[in-house]
């Protein structure tokens, strides 16, 4: 699979590591009650299709990305920098 890093350009997926599905709003991990903290960490929709995920371009520009991808076909529709995306 190849991911179009918004900074580096198209790169092979092995330059990246995946963190998993990204929430619609910026994740909040401090100053939140237990239920919210648990939900932020564990609750995933895991749709059979197009979804938005966090990927980290560790072997490139070290940016955290939001990657728009189809989980069934592995088609990558695009990626943006996570910083400032929320």
């Amino acid at each position: 699979m190849r991911i179009l890093c918004p900074y580096c350009g198209e790169r092979d997926a092995h330059e990246f590591s995946i963190r998993g599905e990204a929430p619609m709003t910026r994740p909040v991990v401090i100053g939140v009650p237990m239920a919210e903290a648990v939900a932020a960490l564990h609750d995933r929709r895991n749709p059979p299709g197009r979804t938005r995920e966090f990927w980290y371009h560790g072997a490139g520009c070290r940016s955290w990305l939001l990657v728009d991808r189809d989980l069934r076909t592995h088609e990558v529709f695009g990626a943006t920098l996570a910083s400032g995306a929320f």
């Binding site: 590591s17 994740p27 991990v29 980290y56 560790g58 070290r62 955290w64 996570a82 910083s83 400032g84």
Partner: peptide, 14 residues
């Protein structure tokens, strides 16, 4: 740790 700190910096508290 680098990846974690970058996540904190870029995603949690930009």
């Amino acid at each position: 740790v680098t990846q974690h700190v970058e996540y904190c910096r870029q995603v949690l508290w930009p």
